[in-house]
């Protein structure tokens, strides 16, 4: 179905997101932080990006800005994984060019429902 770039510095979250998306038939490339993700983003096109906000090396907000500057990612849906305790991140993310967000904690159904909003 869709090719999705999943970014999280937490291995368990990354596994959960990848596994859930793959089960739903998507192709998933995962990355451990913003820098890793940006390098992988440059290797091809993706239908969507799902990224954590708090990460070492390059955080999610910076990643969104960097991705939006790439021609291939100008219109690509980018979802932020935020926590309800940091509502200002949503606004920062929007300002950086994020499409939307998914509030942690979430379960696989919520993840798939949200992804369904942006990929067909």
């Amino acid at each position: 179905m869709a090719k999705i770039l999943a970014v999280d510095d937490s291995a368990s979250m990354r596994q959960m997101v990848s596994y859930t998306l793959k089960q739903a038939g998507h192709q998933v490339v995962d990355a451990a932080d913003g820098r890793d993700a940006l390098a992988k983003a440059k290797t091809g096109r993706f239908d969507a990006v799902i990224t954590d906000v708090n990460m070492p090396n390059m955080d999610g907000i910076t990643l969104v800005k960097e991705l939006r500057a790439l021609p291939n990612f100008k219109f690509t849906p980018i979802l932020l994984l935020t926590t309800e305790s940091a509502p200002e991140k949503k606004q920062q993310g929007k300002a950086a060019g994020a499409t939307g967000w998914l509030v942690k904690p979430f379960d696989p159904e919520k993840l798939l429902a949200t992804v369904k909003k942006v990929v067909r």
Binding site: A2, K3, A11, R14, Q15, Q27, V29, D30, A31, A32, D36, K40, T43, G44, R45, F46, D47, N72, F75, T76
Partner: peptide
């Protein structure tokens, strides 16, 4: 975008270092 996705080569998954976890 969808077409490109099919053609473009998928980068190797990054999780090799954690693959056995």
């Amino acid at each position: 975008a969808a077409d490109a996705a099919v053609v473009s080569e998928a980068p190797a998954p990054s999780s090799a270092g954690h693959g056995d976890n």
